[in-house]
Design a protein around this nucleic acid. Structure first.
Length: 891
DNA sequence: GTTATCACG
DNA sequence: ACGTACGTGATAACA
């Protein structure tokens, strides 16, 4: 059997894949559809062909040399869309990670490289397969060179195969005559002009008779269709040029490096990382059987001997920097946070200069969990730079950690790119150390991390060790980048202190009365039952009201209500659709009420009861690395979306109570985002409006609608308020119209008048978009960045989204910065003044404190001072503050 | 696991 | 012409 080689036309396949695969992008906003499609085609070909060699050819310049000649001639080449362009380096990176040979040559196209290598390999007795989307390549087909052309029709990829015989069969021409064919008929996709008026039919007929272009020209007077004859006579220069354009150079100065092209195991750890980052989940399966060894592994070791450990701790204590990772087991794994007990299973420490030593200490024998914790706490206080992956998690086991020494790599990575959905140690190493360590999937053979106690000793060492290595190795570069990007102050003086504040909030939790929730839930259940019966009766049948699909069928098919389709899967039954129908149909009104109550019961009445711990408190988790704008989020449960707007829902807040002897103290910023906007835009009129008026929405209405302040109607005020909100969201006339239930045109007029009233805001918003377009990211007052890849999109919708985000992110982000600062300041004051008052919750513009009755006055003063003093803006920061014996009263 | 809906700022 | 408000998380249904 002779050797087989597969040669791929990189750009051409990428291009095919781009247009054949629907738009995909990963969490970073990077488009990935073409890369995904490319890899699918590659794997399919390799599975089928089982070649010994593989190489991929790329043009060096996207608009290629040969085509440029014609571009100058006619200048009609469309630029490559940005979404495709950005994927070119990605596929090259992926191929490189897979150790696949990439061949390029200055001054030559991929075609020429494929042609040359193909001929050479054939001459050496190999079987050659060339894969391209470009039919030009058919000219290369022989009995030993197979041209394969993938086509995607309706999401199914099929591949056409051509040896000489197949070319003859399909085109009635020899492969080398394909050149003449193109010369005559042209190829718009490739910008080959051909002869005017000559298509495939005529061209084939001419070539069947005369074999070549030149021979045909010599006999042009005999050519049959008159049009073709004249074209041949008058435009032969075009055909000659076309032939030149269509001819593939099979004598380019390129060589195949057999060693590099030899197909080895390309399931490398680098490739695995790339696939993971690109979120090609079903391609990851290909890696499972192969066990890729990292090429330059981090050296790890496990120490179990007590005196050796003691000695090591002594050495490490003198270090300037260390990285650490804890393996902790939580039991039981579900149920309320407070009911779980934690035990240390082991810990890893990375230290040293240059290539670090990484040591894993299992908590066993004389090295007990308590001993290790004690030692690590000491180390943490001694070592100036102490790096961990997740500081807040670390504090659960090391509550006495020193803030000044802590480097939280997860938070650093979040600030450097807040768009990622996860901050994993392996990504961090890849991104900031340019090295590869095994990810959890590789260590555990699945994306799930088993309980620490269930891991094998090897897995424990690898997981904890690589994590300790990662934070240690990445720290320097991350710190440098944070400083370069002007975020070091934000990192050091806001985010890191906040880690400690949030940890305290989580640990304290908030008391909730199970009984009250249960009673509330029972009341809801009663009314839900009534509604259910009514709905079935009105609908004439029983169905699952919670199923939008079934509900849509009942409403819009069975009962023929107007409202039609809206979502891709069927009818929309969202509240705004149903509300339009509710006044005329009792059924719809009942459904809306049912929905509301069902939500309250399942999410709040039942949901909250389930997370109350044995201590009677709810310990939510506050996430600091989730949002794109810098806000924090709350999960398990989410305490930032407890009902308040509707009275019935609001009653839930009566179940949240202070502990005995305490009261709640709640304060929220008054229109913080609008005030931030006034400050950042510097708009004199808005700033002045804030100085003059109690009620900013009324004031805005007065100015926008040119009526005296006292004569502003409630409707005018409502509209002005909506515009104020809209501005903060990155206004669009459509969105505003939707919100106010008016036409796009009317909304447009409001916006216009608003901008006339506050011209500085108009300028500011434009500047936000322009700046973000230029720099690729937006910035808050405190330096927080948000990258905005969408702004470069050629897709109108995505770009518009980017523009709105560019207007919103600096405002929402700055407000988020301010309340974070306020939280730190409040926490600091409480500590300094040794109060027992505790910060319990943050709800974006609101803080809830649990205050011993005798500290109330002091706490009020602190809260007022620290919240309003958190930032100095051109307008005052004002708060509304209340006390109460539950959250309902305090709000 | 994804989709639709709805709770909050 | 395109088709939207910005930022989150939990639940139930459905595949």
């Amino acid at each position: 059997m002779s050797d087989k080689i597969v040669l791929l036309d990189g750009h051409s396949i990428l291009n095919r894949a781009f247009y054949g695969v629907p738009d995909l992008s990963n969490a970073e906003g990077l488009h990935t559809n073409a890369v995904y499609g490319f890899l699918n085609i590659l794997f399919k070909i390799l599975d089928e062909e089982q070649p010994q060699y593989l190489a991929v050819a790329f043009d060096l310049h996207a608009p290629t040399f040969r085509h440029k000649m014609y571009d100058q001639y006619k200048g009609t080449r469309k630029p490559m869309p940005q979404e495709l362009r950005e994927q070119v380096p990605v596929i090259q990176e992926v191929l490189a990670a897979m150790d696949i040979e990439i061949v390029t040559k200055e001054g030559y196209e991929a075609d020429d490289i494929l042609g040359t290598l193909g001929r050479k390999c054939e001459a050496e007795g190999m079987e050659v397969t060339i894969v391209s989307g470009d039919r030009d390549l058919l000219q290369l087909a022989t009995d030993h060179i197979l041209i394969r052309i993938p086509k995607t029709v309706k999401r199914v990829t099929t591949i056409e195969n051509y040896h000489t015989a197949e070319v003859l069969e399909k085109y009635s021409l020899l492969p080398k005559q394909i050149i003449d064919l193109k010369a005559l008929m042209g190829d718009t996709a490739d910008n080959i002009p051909g002869l005017p008026g000559v298509g495939e039919k005529t061209a084939t007929k001419i070539l069947l008779q005369y074999e070549t272009l030149e021979n045909a020209h010599a006999h042009f007077e005999e050519i049959k269709p008159n049009k073709a004859k004249e074209a041949m006579r008058d435009h032969y220069d075009l055909a000659e040029l076309s032939k030149k354009l269509a001819t593939i150079d099979t004598d380019a100065p390129v060589e195949l490096d057999r060693e590099k092209a030899a197909l080895s195991n390309f399931y490398t750890s680098k490739a695995y990382e790339m696939f993971k980052r690109l979120e090609f989940k079903n391609l990851l399966g290909r890696f499972e059987e192969t066990n890729a060894e990292p090429e330059d592994a981090v050296f790890l070791r496990t120490v179990t001997d007590f005196s050796e450990a003691e000695e090591l701790f002594g050495t490490i204590a003198k270090e300037e920097k260390a990285g650490a990772a804890l393996l902790t087991e939580e039991t039981p794994k579900d149920g309320p946070m407070a009911d779980r007990s934690r035990s240390l299973v082991g810990m890893a420490v990375a230290y040293g200069s240059g290539e670090p030593d990484v040591v894993y200490f299992p908590a066993e024998g004389f090295l007990t969990g308590d001993y290790l914790k004690e030692k690590l706490t000491e180390l943490q206080k001694q070592i100036p730079v102490f790096c961990v992956m997740d500081g807040k998690e670390f504090l659960k086991d090391m509550p006495d950690a020193d803030e000044a020494h802590l480097f939280d790599a997860g938070i650093a990575a979040y600030l450097l790119n807040p768009l990622k959905s996860q901050y994993s140690y392996d990504d961090i190493v890849k991104e900031y150390v340019h090295r590869y360590v095994p990810a959890v999937e590789e260590i555990f053979g699945g994306s799930k991390i088993p309980a620490a106690g269930k891991m094998t000793p090897e897995q424990q060492e690898s997981y904890a060790g690589h994590q300790a290595y990662a934070v240690f190795a990445a720290q320097e570069n991350m710190e440098k980048l944070l400083k370069e990007q002007g975020m070091w102050d934000l990192y050091r003086n806001v985010e890191i202190p906040l880690v400690f504040t949030l940890r305290q909030m989580e640990a304290d939790g908030i008391a909730a009365e199970k009984e009250a929730l249960s009673v509330y839930g029972a009341e809801l259940a009663e009314r839900i039952g009534e509604l259910e019966a009514q709905i079935y009766e009105e609908a004439g049948e029983e169905f699952n009201i919670n199923s939008p699909k079934q509900l849509g069928v009942i409403l819009f098919e069975k009962l023929q209500l107007p409202g039609g389709k809206k979502t891709k899967t069927g009818y929309s039954t969202a509240a705004d659709v149903l509300e339009k129908l509710a006044p005329d149909h009792k059924l719809v009104a009942d459904i809306l009420e049912y929905r509301q109550l069902a939500k309250l019961k399942s999410t709040y009445a039942d949901g909250l009861q389930a997370v109350i711990g044995k201590d009677g408190r709810i310990h939510s988790t506050f996430n600091q690395t989730i949002t794109a704008t810098g806000r924090i989020s709350s999960t398990d449960p989410n305490l930032q979306n407890i009902p308040v707007r509707m009275e019935l829902g609001r009653l839930i807040r009566k179940a949240f109570v202070p502990k005995p002897g305490c009261v709640f103290l709640d304060a929220d910023y008054s229109q913080i985002e609008l005030r931030v906007l006034a400050h950042m835009s510097g708009d004199e009129n808005l700033i002045e409006a804030y100085r003059e008026a109690e009620d900013i929405h009324r004031m805005t209405a007065s100015k926008v609608f040119h009526v005296p302040l006292e004569e502003v109607t409630p409707l005018q005020r409502r509209n002005a308020k909506a515009v104020n909100f809209g501005i903060v969201y990155g206004i669009s006339s459509f969105g505003l119209g939707q919100d106010l239930g008016i036409s796009r045109k009317e909304a447009e007029a409001y916006i216009q008048q608003y901008f006339e009233t506050y011209p500085g805001i108009h300028e500011f918003l434009n500047r936000c978009v322009e700046d973000a377009k230029e720099k690729g990211y937006s910035v808050t007052m405190f330096g927080r960045r948000r990258p905005m890849p969408e702004l470069k999109s050629s897709n109108f919708m995505q770009r518009s989204f980017g523009e709105r985000v560019a207007m919103n992110a600096p405002i929402q982000g700055t407000a988020a910065d301010i309340i974070k600062i306020a939280m730190i300041r409040v926490a600091k004051r409480l500590k300094e003044e040794q109060l027992k008052t505790r910060l319990l919750l943050q709800v974006h513009d609101e803080l809830l404190l649990e205050v011993p009755e005798d500290e109330l006055e002091k706490a009020e003063q602190i809260l007022e001072e620290e919240m309003t003093g958190a930032a100095h803006l051109a307008v005052k920061l004002e708060i509304d503050m209340h006390t109460g014996n539950n959250w309902y009263e305090a709000k």
